[in-house]
Design a protein around this nucleic acid. Structure first.
Lengths: 162, 162
DNA sequence: ATCACTGTTTTGAGTTACTCAAAACAACGC
DNA sequence: GCGTTGTTTTGAGTAACTCAAAACAGTGAT
């Protein structure tokens, strides 16, 4: 019973967030934000596919434009795991890290590492003014582990790394 | 007076290492190893340029082949900092990390992070079997910091990130 | 030293994940 | 509604690779 109101509320909220960031509110930008909510660690291509479902006239380039603008405006963050295209997420400004399945590519957020802000100080900074530390954990997700033990094949859902 | 002997010793050593890894010893592979010794965090293109100085007939593809074979054989490691091409290094099997200048792209090795093996355990592993943790520190190198404070321009040496 | 076998290199084409630019279009303030 | 300026579309262009076939060369056996 609340779905219509919820969608409206989210739409209004999205519009406000876009405007607050100095960006004009357009259909495709709204659709890209919605796609990012639906798929929190997706590539431009994947987001384009999601956007195209509701807005078939949109171009991939527009999705790239929107994502680039979002990143510049601090509304979205771009991560780039080795061997994969850039992935985008709305979680921003909390310096969280990522846990990625080396088989199926699934991505999970990791709030922080055990211990007190551990990964912010290298043993030897070589005179650098260190600004951020990026941590990526690589492992096997439960689904792939399961698939490997029961059958012979992994549970491919995203692109597998060779 | 020892330079000739040193070069021979290194050459022999390189040949042995290649053979031990099950790889045939060829001129281009030796040249790629030498290039990797000279430039410890270089891209395939950069290594190709170094190799081409002594072996002008070599193709870029051969450098890619050699590097791929080295990585497969565990002789080299490939890192892929966000927004940059893949970089290769001979330091392998010690799980060290990297400190990268976000202005000029300079790369330093970082032995480990302060504290006891801190970056190996995410706060919540989401059921994943975590295998490795990759840490990348981004900062400003001394040269760029200097250049920024004295002049208006950074000390560009590698490719700058926008 | 030569040969055959098999791995390596070269050449050339193809792909992915983008970026750049110009012209058509649309949001927003008036 | 209208003009301004930002956005989207279209289309071309690029970097950093990967793939494949044919020419070539290391290696162990002879």
């Amino acid at each position: 019973m609340t779905s219509h109101t919820d969608v409206d509320a989210r739409a209004v909220d999205t519009a406000t967030r876009l405007r607050a960031a100095g960006l004009r509110v357009t259909d495709s930008r709204r659709a890209v934000v919605d796609a990012l909510i639906e798929r929190p660690h997706a590539s431009a291509d994947e987001l384009f596919a999601v956007v195209a479902r509701t807005l078939p006239a949109t171009s991939l380039q527009s999705v790239y434009n929107a994502l680039g603008d979002f990143v510049d405006a601090g509304l979205a963050r771009r991560i780039e795991p080795a061997g994969r295209p850039g992935l985008f997420e709305l979680r921003v400004d909390d310096n969280h890290h990522h846990l990625i399945c080396s088989q199926c590519g699934a991505v999970e957020d990791v709030d922080c590492v055990v211990g007190a802000a551990p990964c912010l100080t290298p043993a030897d900074a070589h005179g650098y003014a260190v600004q951020v530390a990026e941590v990526t954990f690589w492992g096997i997700c439960p689904a792939c582990a399961n698939a490997a033990s029961t059958a012979g094949e992994p549970a491919a859902s995203v692109a597998a790394r060779p």
